[in-house]
Design a binder for these strands. Structure first.
Lengths: 171, 171
DNA sequence: CTAGATGGTCAAGTGGCTTGACCATCACCG
DNA sequence: CGGTGATGGTCAAGCCACTTGACCATCTAG
């Protein structure tokens, strides 16, 4: 029986096969960065006792920070079918992070809001993201990390006709 | 029945809920960048007739560019169990991209190599990645994209004790 | 020479998605 | 104003990409 493997602390490039001069594929850098950000978040959430939080939850909680949303919005945010978004929202509601209500102005819609517990979790997510980003600023240099943020923002908006693309990794 | 949704071309932030001044969570930027890179790669591969290539294949092909590898290496590269890596390698071999041989120096190991077809696909992957990166350099500015690459490289190595982390998105 | 470690596979199971169908509600057009 | 089409959402079933637990063959180290 084997557990999921993680590259051990050895020389860079040991398992990449990529020419050192040519550099690592950008897609791979983004993949590794994303993986580290999400596993870091969830390890730290677990340390604080939040041990039933799946990777999509952080994105949904952030989306609800400023006001209610709907299953259709969550589907668009994540890049999944409305059925899958409904299942995701069900799971989050069942864990007590979200509340569903009926939208009086459009009774097809069920409005989704953060519960008190959801707000507390959102606070933890934001704190941990800020911690991780501060550490990454130390590693990369604060100016370079800001440049990275700004460059990625321009890229994702331009490549997606001015709108933010969906979040769910293509895999 | 609904298809997976993609955020439509509307104002930035429509579905993010994130405060404009505070910016988009870095994890989300990485998620969107990764998603655009991988969906872009696979759309363009499909345009060239490569329509049975799954997202992990590009990473495996790149890893084999310089020489043979093993199922254990692929498991470490991807961040999955050896069983899953074996299934992945089987699928790639069945599509004709990889060849398995026995390693005479360690007969436990099955060496994995690129087939001729695999080399051709690798060439297409590298061309398309270069196209996408050139477009992204236009969008973000070449210097800023280089800074992004360098910063991400430092971050992923430092955060993972000097080794490149695994590739598979945590989800 | 033997016990433990390692590379890899077998078989079965699980979780997170999709698909196809359906229902309730809203919007728009004639 | 009524009917048709669109939209928000859910039901039920199925699929795919992984994991788990077990096992076999081979290598390593004491």
């Amino acid at each position: 029986m084997s557990k999921p493997s993680e590259a051990p602390a050895t020389s860079p490039g040991d398992v990449s096969g990529e020419e050192p001069g040519e550099g690592i594929a950008l897609a791979r850098l983004l993949a590794m960065g994303f993986r580290l950000a999400i596993t870091g978040l969830h390890e730290r959430l677990a340390e604080r006792g939040w041990d039933d939080v799946r990777p999509p939850y952080g994105f949904v909680l952030l989306a609800l920070r400023t006001g209610p949303s709907t299953v259709t919005d969550v589907a668009a945010l994540m890049g999944m079918t409305k059925q899958a978004a409904s299942q995701l929202v069900d799971a989050m509601a069942q864990s007590g992070y979200l509340v569903r209500t009926v939208d009086e102005s459009d009774r097809r819609q069920r409005a989704l809001s953060l519960s008190a517990k959801g707000r507390t979790l959102l606070g933890a997510v934001e704190e941990i993201y800020a911690e991780i980003e501060a550490e990454w600023a130390d590693m990369a240099g604060g100016d370079d990390l800001r440049t990275t943020r700004d460059a990625l923002t321009r890229i994702v908006l331009t490549a997606n006709d001015g709108a933010l693309p969906a979040v769910r990794p293509t895999w």
